[in-house]
Design a protein around this nucleic acid. Sequence first.
DNA 1: TAGCGTCTTGACACCGAGTGCCATGAACGG
DNA 2: CCGTTCATGGCACTCGGTGTCAAGACGCTA
Lengths: 204, 204
Amino acid sequence: MSTRPEVSLAQRKRQLVANELTEAALQLLASKGFDAVTIDEIATSAGVSKRTFFRYFASKEDVVVQFLADMGTGIRAELAARAAGELPSVALRHAVSVPLDECAGHADRALRVVQLILRTPALNARFLEHQAQWRDDLTAELAHRLGLDPDTDLYPPLAAGMTLTAFDVVLRRWSDSDGGEDPAELIQRAFVVIAPALDTVVRK
Amino acid sequence: MSTRPEVSLAQRKRQLVANELTEAALQLLASKGFDAVTIDEIATSAGVSKRTFFRYFASKEDVVVQFLADMGTGIRAELAARAAGELPSVALRHAVSVPLDECAGHADRALRVVQLILRTPALNARFLEHQAQWRDDLTAELAHRLGLDPDTDLYPPLAAGMTLTAFDVVLRRWSDSDGGEDPAELIQRAFVVIAPALDTVVRK
DNA sequence: TAGCGTCTTGACACCGAGTGCCATGAACGG
DNA sequence: CCGTTCATGGCACTCGGTGTCAAGACGCTA
C-alpha cells in the first residue's frame, strides 16, 4: 500500500511521457517559432523517438492545442448544471466563464500558450476547429434546455455562436493586452452587448 | 484589334491554367474525397506538372477555398456602401447577403463546393480562417462607420462576430438541407434573433 | 528460475505535401 | 537573327505522418 496505485503504473508512465513532450514542445515552439521546430527536435528533446511522439499526439499542433478538447465538455457541463429558470444570457455567461477563469488562474503560463496559439496561423486554425465543436455541443445543450428543435429553430446555434464569439473576443483582447485586462470584467461587458439578443423570446 | 487585349495575353493564359486546375481539382475531390486525391493527380489531370500547381496555389486546400478571399472584401465593401444612418442590423444583413445571394445564384455548383468544404475537416479549417479574417475586416469597417475605437469598444468585434455567426449558421443549414431552404429567408430569420443586440446602443 | 503473453518503444521504409534550384523552350523586342 | 524574359518541368530535398516489425520491459504462472 505504498503509493496506492489507483491508476495503473503504466498509465502514470504514459502521463509522464506526455507531460515531458508537451513541456519540451511548449518551450521550443515559444522560443523558436512554430515552423522552425521539427517534431524530431521535440521528441529528442523529450528523450523519445519521433515515432513515439505520434503515439501520443496526432500532429504537431495537437501538442499545444489538445487540452482544448476538454474545455468544450466543461462549458457544456456548466450550462447543463445551471438552474433551468435562469435567463439564457446568465447561464451562458457562467458557462463560458469556466475556461476564462481557468486562464485567469494560471495567468502566466496560460497567457503564453494562448498568445502562441492566437499568433500562429496553424494553431489558430486548430483552435477555431475546436471552437466550432464547442458550438455544436452548446447548441445541442441549449436546444435541450429550452425544448427547441436544433434542426429547425435558429435560436440555439445563433445563441451558441454569439456566446463563443464573446468568448473569442475576450480571449483575444486579453492576449493582445498581455494579460493587462481582466477576463472576468471583459466577459461581463461583452454580455451586456449580446444579452438583448440572447434574452429576447422570438415567437414564430 | 482582333480581341482587344485589355489584359495581356500572358494574363489570360495564366487565368486559363488556373481555371483548368480548379476544375480538375473540384471534379476529383468531389468524387474521390479530399484525402484520396494527390496533387500529382490534380496537376496531371489538368495537363501540368505538380511543380506548376504550386505556382498557382499555395496548398491543396487553396484550390477549393481561394475564391473565399474576395468575398471578405465584398462584404466589407457592401457595408461601406450602405447609408450611414441605416440601422446596424440592416446594413450588416445586406453586407452579409452578398455572398449568400451569390450562392443562391449558381445554386447547383455553389452547393457542391460548399458541401465539400463544410464536410472536409481540412477545408473547413481553412474556411474558418477566412471567416476570422472577414471578422477583422468587418470590425474595422464597423468601428469606422460608428466612430468607435476598435481597440477599446467591444461592440465592433462582437457585432462583426454575431453577423458572421448568422452567416455561418445559414450557410450550414443551406448545405445540410441540400439547398432545400432559402438562404435569403434564413438570413432574414437569423437577423430577427440577433438584431436586438446589434441595434441596442450601449453607453458606457 | 524459467517460460510465456502483453505492451511500449525505436528503427526503418514509405508516402505525400511543399520548396529551392536549374535547364529548357517559347514568346517578345530590337 | 539575337538577347531577354518568363513560364514550365524535372529533380533533389525536407518534413509531417503512417505501417510494419523486431527487440526489450513487465507481469503472470509453473
